[in-house]
Design a protein around this nucleic acid. Structure first.
Length: 474
DNA sequence: CGTCTTTGACCAGCGC
DNA sequence: GCGCTGGTCAAAGACG
């Protein structure tokens, strides 16, 4: 800790009287004791944050379960999982309005849209539907299994690495988008019905839009479970999360009704009617027949084509305009690179948000540090959320009047200041060292402040993914 | 040699 | 009926 470093004697010890040495030693010991107390206090704070997180998570799933799914209507819906997209949304020529309504941190929003012609919304086409119907049990799949999951992410590589094995079977240049659309099918197991489309956003070439359809009929590699679980869970939410009723008429109308956006842990889960042009991808002709789940991992100002209403929300956005933030995640959509690559921590975040499974991975301080550094440096809102949480905890603690709490308050303020001040800076090294310091000081006290019990699942999964990564490499 | 990608052809749905 | 469009097929070539 810097406190200790500052207290290190700088002058020649030979000229310092023995009494002064002892005084400094005692002073250093006292400082160490205070630091330990601070660590204990921080641990309590984090425990409380964890409790709050779990409580919110439980509330979220309760709401999901309580929402009586109307499968006849939900099959006509799109679900959009937005991570941090808070900018104003365009729906054709209209803009959206906001209607907060749900409690427990769950917001809802309304939106208007013009009838969209999104190729994303219409895949698979009727031909495929007929084809799958001829395949026997394919048509027996429930809407969840038939749901499509569209993932938007910033990625320089041709495809996202989702851990699965894909084989490209076609490529087309769709009208209105100079970027060709690639068609892949899962080759992990023969006969796997899962297919995906990959296309770059015409308005922002850095955004890669991947649309998945179908469920895997085989075990998935560990590195692929994050995305698969995400899509599956999102599809489940698609059915359970809609309380709004729609009709085919509504789908054909020029304006759509309001569907809720739920915010949990900073993640926005919004439901869109299928006619909503969530993302540009113009030119589609067929009517929407499958529910579509859109997972927006972008929040760049340039992604003005995203059609999410602007609404005030506390959002954790783990995307970054710099794709290198996830160097080991994207790219090379072939084979099983996922076994050697880390599962994107934000994907795991999503997965855990749905599954409620707080992974208790092994300790990996370095991975945690890097993850924290990336999370903090990649998004200001993340820093703000952390700072706000710490501020809240510290302030409530300081009200107790305990002098040590005042020190904790000061420490928290410094931490907040340090976090917030990272805006606009390349502070990976700083964040890394900062949390290294936290973690190392924690280990001194024998606690597990930042270890698997960390309240943010992103951190837990960072452990997990790192562990998986090491396992696969071994 | 096996696997994968490329790419033109083909098919079906939709709008005019 | 025709043209447009999206999606799939399959032969040929590339690659390790």
């Amino acid at each position: 800790m810097e406190v200790l470093l500052m207290k290190m004697p700088s002058s020649d010890p030979d000229v310092i009287p023995q009494a002064n040495k002892e005084d400094e030693l005692e002073s250093a010991k006292a400082e160490m004791g205070e630091v330990k107390e601070e660590n204990q206090r921080l641990k309590k704070m984090l425990d409380k944050i964890q409790e709050n997180y779990k409580s919110l998570q439980l509330s979220f799933f309760k709401i999901l379960q309580q929402g009586a799914p109307n499968k006849s209507t939900t099959s006509l819906l799109n679900v959009s999982l937005s991570l941090g997209t808070t900018e104003p949304i365009k729906h054709g020529k209209t803009t959206s309005s906001i209607k907060p309504s749900l409690s427990l941190g769950l917001d809802s929003k309304s939106q208007l849209s013009t009838p969209a012609n999104s190729s994303e919304e219409t895949w698979p086409p009727s031909k495929i539907q007929n084809t799958t119907s001829r395949n026997g049990d394919e048509d027996q799949q429930n809407p969840v299994k038939r749901a499509r999951v569209c993932v938007r992410a910033r990625c320089d590589a041709p495809t996202m690495n989702d851990g699965c094995q894909w084989r490209k079977y076609g490529q087309k240049v769709s009208k209105g988008n100079p970027c060709p659309r690639a068609y892949y099918r899962c080759t992990v197991a023969p006969g796997c019905p899962v297919r995906k489309q990959v296309q770059r956003c015409a308005e922002d070439m850095s955004i890669l839009i991947t649309t998945y359809e179908g469920n895997h009929n085989h075990p998935l590699p560990v590195s692929a479970t994050a995305m698969a679980s995400t899509t599956s869970a999102a599809a489940s939410m698609l059915l359970s999360g809609s309380s709004s009723s729609t009709s085919q008429q509504g789908l054909n109308s020029t304006a759509t009704t309001t569907l809720p956006t739920q915010v949990l842990n900073g993640f926005n889960f919004s439901l869109h009617e299928n006619s909503t042009k969530q993302f540009y991808l113009p030119n589609s002709t067929s009517s929407p027949l499958f529910p579509t789940i859109t997972l927006d991992l972008t929040s760049s100002p340039s992604s003005s084509s995203t059609n999410f209403p602007s609404f005030p929300t506390t959002s954790l956005n783990f995307s970054s305009s710099e794709s290198r933030v996830f160097p080991a995640v994207w790219g090379n959509g072939n084979g099983y690179p996922g076994y050697g690559a880390k599962v994107p921590y934000y994907q795991n975040q999503i997965y855990e948000s749905f599954s409620g499974d707080n992974l208790q991975g092994q300790t990996c301080q370095q991975s945690l540090t890097e993850t924290l550094a990336k999370a903090i440096t990649s998004d200001p809102s993340f820093r703000s959320v952390i700072a706000a949480a710490i501020s809240s905890m510290v302030c409530s603690s300081a009200k107790s009047g305990d002098p040590t709490d005042q020190k904790a308050e000061k420490f928290g303020q410094n931490l907040m200041q340090a976090i917030i001040s990272q805006d606009g800076k390349d502070e990976s090294s700083f964040s890394s060292s900062y949390f290294n310091g936290l973690a190392s000081s924690t280990s001194q006290t024998g606690s597990s402040l930042l270890q698997p019990s960390f309240p943010f699942p992103i951190f837990n999964t960072a452990f997990q993914s790192a562990s998986d990564d090491k396992e696969h490499k071994n």
